[in-house]
Each structure stands twice: as structure tokens, then as C-alpha cells.
Simulated assay, not measured.
Amino acid sequence: MDADLLERARNVRLAIFDVDGVLTDGRLYFLVDGSEFKTFNTLDGHGIKMLIRSGVRTAIISGRKTPVVERRAANLGIQHLYQGREDKIVVVEELLGQLGLDYSQVAYLGDDLPDLPVIRRVGLGMAVANAAAFVRRHAHGVTEARGGEGAAREFCELIMQAQGTLEPALAAYL
């Protein structure tokens, strides 16, 4: 494990996720009636639940707005949900003020250009394996897994490993 990433992850108190391309594979599915659906990875979901149980707060910031994301966030227990917000750095500023945190205590997982200002500013800014090349180049780290295929789980476990909470969480299943 990269020592710099572990050091950055040690102080994280808030983990923020983008949705399309991070919690999903990035595809948008529209039905004939205009409704939309998304597919989520159960491994990612359990990783987020473990991270929350470890004491790290979680948030979703998405430029798009859809009821399915609201349902997924509620199912996972994600505490802060912001949809339809294109300027993600403004949302992060709001969250920092609300939670009394600073940028060094925030981790962010994204995949595309609208995520980049946050990725570059937070203590741990990561991109998924299939993120845009420019985003990967400017992130602190890149997951091995692709968005919607375990990248969020990997991100959560990195934070937990750095904070010494991963092994106890896994041991509970033995």
C-alpha cells in the first residue's frame, strides 16, 4: 500500500463520493417513459457501511439528480446527500462549515473533470481506474478497480486500513 496515501487517509473524517462513474459504471439508463435507473455494486455498498460504522462520515455529491440515488444513499446510511450540484467545491465548503472540518480531513473519490477541483483540494483525492486520464494524472491516487466495480470498496478499505479499523471490522466476520 502506498505510504503517502495511507498517511493522507489517516486523518480522514469525511469521505465523499461522486455517483456516475464512481458508484456506478458511468452508464446512464433511460426507459421509454423517461425514467432512469442505475446499477450499484453490493461490494461498494458494504464497504461504505463498514466505513460509516468505523466512525467516518459520508457524503454524496452528484451533478445529476435522480430518486434512485436518494434511495441508495438512504439504504447505505450515507449522512449527507447533495444532488443537482455542479459546483462541487461549493458543496464541500458548506459541508466543512457544517461539520467543523478542514480540507485535510476529507477524502473524495471521483472520475471526471467536475470532480477535479475537489480532488486537488482535499487531504485524500482519488480517482477510479477508468476515470478521465487528466483526472487520474492530478489525483493523489487511483484505485485498481473501475467505477461501479469495487472502486468505492477499495477507497473505503484504504481509509480504514490507515486508521486501524479495517482488521477489526473484517475480524467480526470470522
Rank of each mutant, 00 (worst) to 15 (best):
D2V: 03
D2H: 07
A3E: 12
D4H: 10
D4E: 14
L6Q: 12
R8G: 06
N11M: 06
V12R: 08
I16E: 09
D20Y: 06
G21E: 00
L23I: 09
L23K: 13
Y29L: 12
V32W: 11
D33L: 05
D33H: 02
G34M: 05
G34V: 04
E36G: 03
F37L: 13
K38S: 04
K38F: 06
T39W: 04
T39R: 08
F40T: 01
D44C: 00
H46S: 02
I48F: 02
I48N: 06
M50I: 09
M50W: 06
I52G: 06
R53W: 08
R53A: 14
S54L: 05
S54Q: 10
G55L: 10
T58D: 01
A59F: 01
I60T: 03
G63W: 09
G63K: 04
K65Y: 13
P67F: 15
P67Y: 14
V69H: 03
V69D: 06
E70W: 07
E70G: 12
R71E: 12
G77D: 12
G77L: 11
I78N: 09
Y82L: 11
Y82P: 00
Q83T: 07
G84M: 14
R85F: 03
E86D: 12
E86M: 11
I89P: 04
V90S: 13
V91L: 05
V91N: 08
V92W: 00
L95P: 03
L95N: 00
L96H: 14
L96S: 11
G97P: 07
G97H: 12
Q98P: 04
Q98R: 15
L101S: 00
L101N: 07
D102A: 10
V106E: 00
A107P: 11
L109F: 07
L109K: 02
D112I: 13
D112E: 13
D112V: 09
L113P: 07
P114E: 12
P117W: 11
I119N: 08
R120F: 00
R120E: 04
V122D: 05
G123L: 10
G123K: 09
L124W: 00
G125D: 10
M126F: 04
A127D: 07
A127S: 02
V128P: 00
A129R: 14
A129I: 07
A131I: 04
A131N: 08
A132Q: 11
A132T: 03
V135I: 03
R136V: 08
R137I: 05
A139F: 08
A139I: 03
E144Q: 14
R146Y: 13
E154C: 00
C156F: 06
C156T: 09
Q163Y: 02
Q163D: 12
Q163P: 11
Q163C: 02
G164Y: 04
G164S: 05
L166Y: 14
P168C: 13
P168L: 11
L170G: 11
L170N: 10
A172W: 15
L174A: 15
